Amino acid sequence: MTDPTPQRPRPVDPRGDTRLAGLSWPAVISLGLLALARPLARITGADEVLGTPGGPLLLTLAVTAAWVLVVGLGRVPRPVLTLTLAGVTYALATLPLSAVLSTVIDGVPAGPLVNPVAIVPVLLLNAGWGALAGVLALGVQRLRGGHG
């Protein structure tokens, strides 16, 4: 038996996949890489200037604010998905980075690649961070009269 409810047509992606239609991949990747400011601050010692635990928290809030403002004020399409994937991009970038840098800095590899059980939680945590920022960006867009 078929559902009599008419379905709204989905946007069509030229590659045939409609789930990611309208997504700004440059925004996803650049915003994901922007979050690398957090580990960069740790590596350079810049986070020590801000203190612990305040430094990492302030950097996380700064990245989140940048994500929300860029996507919300920039009217980037599909803000929740865009920032969810930006969080995943950040997580994927930190996986090899943590292993390499811990080896260089501490002489011992560390991080999720050394402890693979941690990979899924890292991906989920950062996807959640991005999704939360995406909801905030969507709110900014709606306040400004956008449609998200």
Rank of each mutant, 00 (worst) to 15 (best):
D47G: 04
M1S: 11
P77N: 07
G146D: 00
I29S: 05
V117W: 08
I43K: 02
P11A: 15
P112H: 14
G111E: 01
P53C: 03
P26I: 10
T52M: 14
V88E: 03
L97F: 15
G51L: 11
T89D: 05
T84P: 10
V28D: 05
D47P: 00
L23I: 13
L36T: 15
A86Y: 00
L113Q: 07
V68P: 01
L123R: 00
A137P: 05
T60H: 06
V80S: 03
G72L: 00
E48Y: 10
L143Y: 07
G32F: 01
G32L: 04
V80L: 03
A118Y: 09
V104H: 08
L125G: 10
G22F: 03
A21K: 05
L125I: 15
V114G: 06
L36D: 05
S98R: 15
S102I: 07
L36S: 09
L59T: 02
V70F: 07
L20V: 14
D47M: 06
P39D: 13
R10D: 15
T94S: 08
T89P: 00
G111D: 03
G107H: 13
P116D: 09
D47A: 12
L69A: 14
V104W: 07
A99H: 03
L138M: 12
L23K: 07
P39K: 12
I29V: 15
V140Y: 02
W25I: 15
A133W: 00
N115V: 14
L50K: 01
A41T: 13
L50I: 07
D13I: 11
I29L: 15
A133R: 01
G87A: 14
L73Q: 09
I119N: 05
G32N: 02
R19E: 06
P56I: 14
